[in-house]
Amino acid sequence: MEATASVDNAAQAEENKLKTMKEEVIAQPSVDDIQGTVGTPFVENAKMSMRNVNVYYAEKQAIFNVGLDIGKNEVVAMIGPSGCGKSTFLRCMNRMNDTIDICKVEGSLTLEGQDIYDPKLDVVPLRARVGMVFQKPNPFPKSIYDNVAYGPRIHGLTNRKAELDEIVETSLRKASLWDEVKDRLHAPGTGLSGGQQQRLCIARTIAVSPEVILMDEPCSALDPIATAKIEELIAELSENFTIAIVTHSMQQAARVSNRTAYFHLGKLIEVNDTEKVFTNPEHELTEAYITGRFG
């Protein structure tokens, strides 16, 4: 008898716990209630403008009606829980989603007023103008020099060895990697440490002189010291480039960006100046996320 009673009690307690948890969940505003984006998604001197963007993976919709501007020489951070569509959105901005067969993008995405999903547009120059740095460092199995020279070579930026040398050196300097690798430019790029590899990938991207750099969680595979170097680098790069960065680290977003966009389940909830987002968020979902209630 006693044993049964205690089991019953335990079951009761479990049920109560579940109930409270459910109530908590219900207490949060449901995503379907959100009408548009709060804050300042649009700016005056936009380098890239996205309006009414919907993205589908086969039948499943991943991005719902998102509108966002990336201003010239601005760093925009995109944050949000896993699976909220921030990487998908970033990959739309240089048509990297074209490599996924089932992915379909709707809406208007423009780079300096030019529709980047125009069927007549060639993606090759587009991707040269909008470069991308990936989550995992992905140097090519070539030498450090050839990694950086890869982009300039395929775009025919120069035929002269001296000019190419110069491009490689400036790019490596801008990526603050030059001093570490100048004596072994012909060693394989894959032999560098993780942080150096990621800076090599950044150097490779800026070697084609893009206007916009998209960064997809560039520090998630790196240790804190390497991360600090990359963050420093982002600050320097923002003088010359427009940067959109997806990150899981809210501290990183707070440190490197001018504006922060918060995504939730495929919708853009709030865009505001970074300081405002982290000190005085407008939307309760944003507040819930940055205070660590979920995510």
Binding site: V123, V124, F140, P141, Y150, G151, I154, H155, T205
Partner: peptide, 15 residues
């Protein structure tokens, strides 16, 4: 060959 290498190259604007 990891997809990330292809992405890296395509992301630089190569065909």
């Amino acid at each position: 060959v990891p997809q990330s290498l292809r992405d890296g190259s395509l992301g630089l604007g190569s065909t």
